[in-house]
């Protein structure tokens, strides 16, 4: 039974977005040759860190066959906590962040036990995150812990930090999800839950594990964002809900069947991030960024449908 839920080779799924990303980079380098240096890349891809963590968080939820519409506000909440408690009362801040991860695991358990639609539960949770963020930090402000800003300003030799971290996240995600037997089980939860249950694995445990992973990655996204922005804002993360979903899909993931790819999600996050830079290089108002990001999502899904239609 388990053999059936094994995925087809992931390479073509990841190759296409990788080629698209390469094309975008070539276009950007052609328009702005200065971007082709160590510091140019660091500047261009600085915000890849929160985007990559957000995309992999969303990927964990999508692997369970669910979707997380509360991820953006969750990242805002982490940002607010990191810019206040983590600076002034580090112990309380760490406990609060751990509780947030536990809350994510609890949401996974609730969705599984009561068979609730993840979309409504995570949308409801988004109100809770937003409300808590406003309680912690009613108006934008606060300041990031010094260690966090220092950490994000590190210049590793040879490879810019955002590139290095992106590769590491993709690699670790690939190892955990695609190369371990429990990773196969986890993907099976969204792919063929009955087979997973028959094989003796706990569906509840698996969903909780995936949601907890999403919580941890969401916290990392919020911390990275705080280190970059050096301040807190209860609405700063809103965009990451769409960006993360689009990144997973553009990177070759599917909404059903537990078909996801960590490397693809990382590449998808870069593509979503670079649309912003590309728009500004093309002198198009950033007002349209949402449109372009939504449009890319529609385009990729439309092309995929066309392909299936032709194959059928």
């Amino acid at each position: 039974m388990l053999a059936e839920i094994r995925l087809p080779p992931a390479s073509p799924r990841v190759l296409l977005p990788a080629a698209a990303l390469a094309a975008m980079l070539v276009l950007i380098f052609a328009m702005e040759p200065r971007a082709m240096s160590y510091f140019g890349l660091t500047l261009l891809l600085n915000f890849a860190l929160p985007a990559v963590f957000a995309a992999t968080a969303q990927m964990a939820v999508i692997a369970a066959g669910d979707i997380d519409l509360g991820l953006g506000p969750f990242i805002s909440l982490v940002n607010c906590l990191a810019a206040t408690w983590l600076t002034t009362r580090p112990a309380a801040g760490i406990v609060a962040l751990a509780l947030l991860v536990a809350a994510y695991a609890a949401i996974g358990a609730l969705i599984h036990l009561r068979r609730l639609p993840s979309i409504v539960v995570t949308l409801g949770a988004s109100f809770v995150w937003l409300g808590l963020a406003l309680l912690v930090l009613p108006t934008p402000g606060g300041s990031a812990p010094a260690w966090l800003t220092t950490l994000l300003a590190v210049h590793p030799p040879g490879v810019p930090l955002p590139v290095l971290v992106s590769i590491l996240v993709g690699l670790i995600g690939w190892l955990l999800l695609m190369r371990t037997s429990y990773g196969t089980v986890l993907r099976g939860i969204g792919g063929n839950p009955r087979a997973v249950a028959r094989a003796g694995w706990s569906l509840l445990g698996g969903r909780v594990a995936l949601y907890a992973a999403a919580g941890i990655l969401g916290v990392l996204a919020g911390l990275a964002l705080t280190g970059l922005n050096t301040a807190g804002d209860a609405t700063v993360g809103t965009q990451y809900t769409l960006v993360s979903i689009a990144a997973v899909i553009v990177g070759g993931g599917e909404f059903v069947g537990g078909i996801v790819s960590p490397a693809g999600a990382v590449i998808g996050a870069w593509i979503m991030l670079l649309t912003g830079s590309l728009l500004s290089f093309l002198d198009i108002s950033t007002d349209w960024q949402l449109s372009v990001q939504g449009g890319i999502l529609i385009l990729v899904l439309g092309l995929r449908a066309l392909e299936q239609w032709r194959a059928a």
Partner: peptide, 18 residues
């Protein structure tokens, strides 16, 4: 285009918003 409604309408909503 056979896009799942959840994603299709989420994406179109962002297009309208922008």
């Amino acid at each position: 285009l056979r896009i799942p409604p959840m994603i299709g309408t989420l994406a179109s909503g962002f297009v309208f918003q922008s």
